[in-house]
Design a protein around this nucleic acid. Structure first.
Length: 350
DNA sequence: GATGCCGGGTT
DNA sequence: AACCCGGCATC
């Protein structure tokens, strides 16, 4: 009986070398109670509602910004002050994206900074040309006359295109439409013109067929996007292939990244990912019409996420005696590993 | 308060 | 993956 158990006379006997230094069962059966130390600010967050979801639409986030609805772009802001740090990241990302997508940078002139970066990600995600399979190849897409861009680090790009440069451009590009077909990049001043251009040049259709049966692929974008509602800009940025961003199994709950893409192009028969939720089916919602500052339409469904269907309310706790009970605190070394780790006992199952 | 163990962090 | 622990539900 007691012979088999290594008496407490030799505490270090079968015990793993590590183990809490201060805990000595042999001498202190009381073990360590609880941390009597003042729990300073531990419970600051008793129940946090999904940081992600919260961030997405947290109305308070934009409180400091201008009163305009478009001003509050829920960029992942956790601890970073609304200042430079974030901007830098964002700008770097923007520059990067711009480099790999199209030579013409753009953005609404009147919008605040925070909105800028958000445009890029979704544009990049959408811009994917149809025929190009999936691999968006930045290298092959450089039909740009003014952006040679050799191997450049993001930072370099950032400084290269510095704000002034960006700004200069955007002001002049405002209201333009750029063809996104590979190696085209044509810029027109009207949406209809652009559609015509695409029809004629890229689709080889007659200009008369205004809107066929919704089979046309108008890959163009408005250079003066005045929208915003782009939520969660960076985190939703899938560097590789936009098409792959479709979650493996989503019945329809909602996209992980609520992207509201307001203006521009209509994707063809592509399995238009959840992203494109708005816009009319046939008229490829052109910029001017859809530019209304919408307070993140998709946000509504964001919180209603999977939320873990199980909610697993913890099992009742079995009646079997567990290692702790059987061996006691003094012989912790005899416990099963699970018990030692405060996991469900593996030895005395219920 | 003791116990069982989940959830999450660290190594 | 192994190890550890905070914290919570239950007894």
């Amino acid at each position: 009986m007691e012979a088999e158990r290594p008496p407490a006379s030799d505490p270090g006997c079968g015990r793993p070398p590590r183990r809490t230094a201060g805990r000595d069962p042999a001498t202190a059966p009381v073990s360590v109670p609880a941390p009597p130390q003042g729990p300073a600010v531990e419970f600051a967050l008793p129940r946090e509602p999904e940081p992600r979801a919260a961030d997405l639409g947290a109305p308070g986030a934009g409180a400091a910004g201008p009163p305009t609805p478009s001003a509050h772009i829920p960029v992942p802001v956790h601890r970073t002050p609304p200042g430079k740090a974030r901007l830098d990241e964002v700008m770097a990302a923007t520059a990067l994206t711009s480099l790999s997508t199209s030579p013409l940078l753009l953005r609404a002139p009147g919008v605040t900074f925070s909105t800028e970066p958000c445009l890029e990600p979704w544009r990049e995600a959408l811009v994917q040309p149809p025929g190009s399979g999936r691999g968006w190849d930045p290298a092959s897409d450089q039909s740009s006359p003014s952006a040679p861009s050799p191997p450049l680090p993001p930072e370099a790009a950032h400084f290269l295109f510095g704000e002034s440069a960006l700004r200069k451009r955007k002001s002049s590009l405002q209201g333009l439409f750029q063809c996104l077909w590979k190696r085209c990049g044509k810029v027109l001043s009207s949406a209809s013109g652009m559609q015509r251009h695409i029809r004629l040049v890229h689709l080889g259709r007659q200009a008369e067929l205004e809107q066929s049966d919704g089979e046309e692929d108008f890959y163009y974008t408005e250079l003066d996007s005045g929208m915003d509602s782009l939520t969660d800009g960076l985190s939703g940025l899938t560097p590789g292939s936009p098409t792959a961003s479709v979650p493996p199994a989503f019945p329809r709950l909602e996209p992980p990244e609520p992207l509201a893409l307001p203006s521009l192009l209509r994707l063809p028969a592509l399995p238009a990912p959840p992203v494109l939720s708005t816009t009319s089916p046939s008229q490829g919602c052109l910029a001017p019409v859809c530019l209304e500052p919408q307070p993140t339409p998709v946000r509504a469904c964001a919180p209603a996420l999977p939320a873990k269907p199980s909610a697993n309310p913890r099992k009742p706790r079995g009646d079997a005696k567990k290692c702790r009970k059987v061996y006691g605190m003094d012989h912790r070394d005899l416990w099963c590993t699970a018990c030692r780790w405060k996991k469900a006992c593996q030895r005395f199952l219920d």
